[in-house]
Amino acid sequence: MSFLGGRGGNPAPSGGVNLEKVEMAVTELDTITDFFNRMVQSCHSKCISTRYAEDDLNKGESVCVDRCVAKFNDVQKKVGEKLQSRGAANAGGGSAFGSL
């Protein structure tokens, strides 16, 4: 899921910390976490009954969650391809920064 492009460069030679590389990794981590959290929320809405009469996921809910994760991931890929084909640079037009 390295959609931020290759992690730049080799390790810093003498055991120092390449801050730019670390920052890139942190951005990637934050993105994956955000993605995961949204997947949890969306699949919860789609699959988990709100009657809350028991502690366990029932069979239907469990199967639904598995498929939901697969579909959410597929949507993520589809959207990513679409954004890439439009050109990441261009897509910036729809952001606040294009407007300042």
Binding site: M39, Y52, L57, S62, V65, V69
Partner: peptide, 13 residues
């Protein structure tokens, strides 16, 4: 249920 749900999503992910 929320915890079990999160764990299941985490496992599949």
């Amino acid at each position: 249920k929320f915890i079990k749900h999160s764990e299941r999503v985490g496992a599949r992910f």
